[in-house]
């Protein structure tokens, strides 16, 4: 089964070793106003986040990757204007 690009955020979440709840708490701390259920839908590509909200999710994941000694693999909204490949 090929990986739909829409769920790349959820793949990144799994890669970062975060539960759905962990990610939501981190996203909420960064000022997010979306409920945990909606965030899950966004991560799976069932809903589309606004750019600022996408950046909150991306940054929550990237801060976790930094803790793990890795770079910032999840692209931000600005990045997608120049590069479309979300692969870490």
């Amino acid at each position: 089964m090929s990986t739909p690009p829409h769920n790349s955020l959820d793949l990144a979440r799994q890669d970062a070793g975060l539960s759905q709840h962990d990610l939501w708490v981190r996203y909420f701390a960064l000022g997010g106003m979306t409920s945990a259920l909606e965030l899950e839908a966004v991560c799976h590509g069932a809903m589309v986040a606004t750019d600022p909200d996408h950046d909150r999710i991306a940054h929550a994941l990237n801060e976790r990757f930094t803790e793990l000694g890795r770079n910032h693999p999840v692209p931000y909204s600005e990045d997608s204007e120049t590069a479309e490949d979300p692969a870490a």
Binding site: V25, A29, G31, P52
Partner: peptide
């Protein structure tokens, strides 16, 4: 509880940038 506290701090920093550098909310956050 820590997340609620973090939100407040980030919003305040965002507000500071908006006032001092005349930024829009999204630009300040970015």
């Amino acid at each position: 509880a820590a997340a609620l506290h973090a939100r407040e701090t980030i919003a305040l920093a965002q507000g500071l940038l908006m006032a001092r550098r005349q930024m829009r909310p999204d630009a300040a956050y970015r």
